[in-house]
Write a protein that binds this DNA or RNA. Sequence first.
DNA 1: TACCTTCGCAATATCGAGATTGATGCCGAC
DNA 2: GTCGGCATCAATCTCGATATTGCGAAGGTA
Lengths: 237, 237
Amino acid sequence: MYPSTSPRSNAAEALPPPPKTLVESAYRNLRKNIIEGRLTPGEKLRIEHMKEDYGVGGATLREALSLLISDALVVSQGQRGFRVAPVSLDDLADITETRVMLEGEALRQSIRRGDEAWEANLMAAFHRLTRAEEKLAAGDNREEWEERNRVFHEVLIAACPSRWIKHFVTILYNQAERYRHLSLRESTIPRDVHAEHRALFDAALERDAEKASAILAQHIRSTLDTVSMLPAASVGH
Amino acid sequence: MYPSTSPRSNAAEALPPPPKTLVESAYRNLRKNIIEGRLTPGEKLRIEHMKEDYGVGGATLREALSLLISDALVVSQGQRGFRVAPVSLDDLADITETRVMLEGEALRQSIRRGDEAWEANLMAAFHRLTRAEEKLAAGDNREEWEERNRVFHEVLIAACPSRWIKHFVTILYNQAERYRHLSLRESTIPRDVHAEHRALFDAALERDAEKASAILAQHIRSTLDTVSMLPAASVGH
DNA sequence: TACCTTCGCAATATCGAGATTGATGCCGAC
DNA sequence: GTCGGCATCAATCTCGATATTGCGAAGGTA
């Protein structure tokens, strides 16, 4: 109808389109439940039970679970059904270091190649994140902060030309988010996270790739440090 | 039955266990057909037709296709079915550089941490690869060479402790193998590949991580160079 | 002639039921 | 008392059928 209004205004505002298929819907719900810790690591995923919970047939659920294997949030054991992917401190350490390498490289490339539009998107995303962090200090708009934090990290590396690196970074980000939920289920955000984000933002706008990636590395590793406890989480075989 | 004989003798000999489910079987056949180029990039994968070819039901095929999305060999377009993942020179360049980074890092770590058992496996794998390359020069035991080349590269980085890096490397290796099949469908192996393998092998045993990763980088990039032609492959939307 | 609308067909997405496999508890033997 | 084998049962895995969606051709309008 309208002349040439692009379907989405800009990348920083893009909301995921509504699921157009039942598989997609079940996939997103399941992923959310796993990442946010409502499904215990190692837990058996019984199709029969979940048919009722998600309101879809067995084959559909099965397909959604197969899609979750891509994200390594679900594992399938031959003919013994599906389980939520187990967790361990070793795995978290691996995720952390791999993130440092991949997200650091993506950030360096992004800083080197980002144009003015990238800068604008970055400023917008940082602004939204800052507002969310202020609101988070009072009430808990946790979900909003989660989303804006994700978008901020996405926009930081948006100018990296490698789709593969960004693909892997996304997978690892989801993994790390799951560990964060498993550890600090109730605690609020540590006090210095905003300072880290600001330092990251400043270094990116100054086009100091090495400084920015160093800050990012510390930022990622600090998440690992805060997860010193894993009481019931380390059961996952 | 036997006292404590491990199920597999060693890593270099490990054969994949037979598929225990029809989904697994269809998944492997499809993956093989895509990697080896029998399914054209961008081609529509019609469930109805393939039901007959693979002898399984629609839901089963659908699940196998969902698994192939993990490997980025298949893409699904909302409610418009599945297609073979498209190809492009940009994508191949991206895959190549990402491989150089990840496989190089994995190799450095592997050389740093490999023990005697790793050295032994590496020697065995290199020996098998050498034999296969000799046989390849005469008749075309192409499949055997493919398999042993894959195992050689796997063993090279086997001592890298990061499962995530190795996971990503495997995905990219499959992608690269597909491009190789798409380009040189008939041609034989270039003459200097064995020399590159030997140099890689020597540097690894000398524990010269930097030298080895440099050779590996050139080795990976040379694959990109040989793919200057992509006549019918670039149709992928 | 070019464009938009409408209609028909092919393909997808999904469900419920049946076949096959793995796990659990009980019983008998050594 | 402990181990191995067997039967029962639950859960997975699979298939054929059905409703819904998307694509292409025909027809109408300016």
